[in-house]
C-alpha cells in the first residue's frame, strides 16, 4: 500500500486521477491539495506528528499561492529531515518534449520524472507500480 499525494488546483483532474487510482489500485491511500502551500503545510504537520509521509507526489506546476516550482524549492529545504524516500512526479501541461530533459537534469534526484498533461491511464498505473 502506498500513500499517494496529488497537488493540483484542477478539481476535475484531481477527482479523475483519484478515481483511476482507486479503481485500478484499490489498496492505496490518496490525499490531495489544491496548491503547494497547503501541501507543504500538511507535510510539515506530518513531520511534526510523525505521521506517515506520502510515498508518491503527483505535482502540478501552475497553481496559485505556491506553484509547483516554489513547492519543489521549499521541499528541497526540508528534504534532509525526511528519512523516507519520496518519489515526486511533476505532471503538467507545461512539460513538453523540448524542456522535459532539461528539467530532469535540473531537478535530479528530487524529481523522479516530468510528465506532460493530459496524462493517460496507463502512464498513471505504471507510475504507481
Amino acid at each position: 500500500m502506498k500513500n499517494i499525494c496529488i497537488i493540483d488546483n484542477d478539481k476535475i483532474y484531481t477527482f479523475g486521477v483519484s478515481k483511476i487510482i482507486k479503481n485500478q489500485l484499490p489498496r492505496n491511500k490518496i490525499i490531495s491539495f489544491e496548491n503547494g502551500r497547503n501541501a507543504l503545510d500538511a507535510i510539515h504537520e506530518m513531520l511534526q506528528n510523525n505521521d506517515p509521509l506520502p510515498d508518491l507526489i503527483l505535482l502540478d506546476i501552475k497553481m496559485p499561492e505556491l506553484n509547483g516550482w516554489d513547492f519543489l524549492h521549499e521541499f528541497k529545504k526540508i528534504r534532509g529531515k525526511i528519512d523516507k524516500e519520496i518519489q515526486i512526479f511533476v505532471i503538467s501541461s507545461r512539460i513538453s518534449k523540448t524542456n522535459r530533459e532539461r528539467y530532469r537534469l535540473e531537478w535530479e534526484p528530487i524529481v523522479t520524472d516530468f510528465i506532460p498533461k493530459p496524462v493517460k491511464m496507463g502512464t498513471l498505473q505504471a507510475l504507481i507500480n
Binding site: 476535475i12 483532474y13 479523475g16 479503481n23 501541461s93 498533461k117 493530459p118 496524462v119 491511464m121
Partner: peptide, 23 residues
C-alpha cells in the same frame, strides 16, 4: 490554446474513460 484548452480536453477524455470502465 495549447495549455489551458489541453487541460480541459484532457479532463473530459479522462472522465469519459472512467465512465466507460463500467461503474
Amino acid at each position: 490554446a495549447s495549455h489551458n484548452l489541453r487541460n480541459h480536453a484532457g479532463n473530459i477524455s479522462m472522465l469519459l474513460e472512467l465512465y466507460g470502465s463500467g461503474e
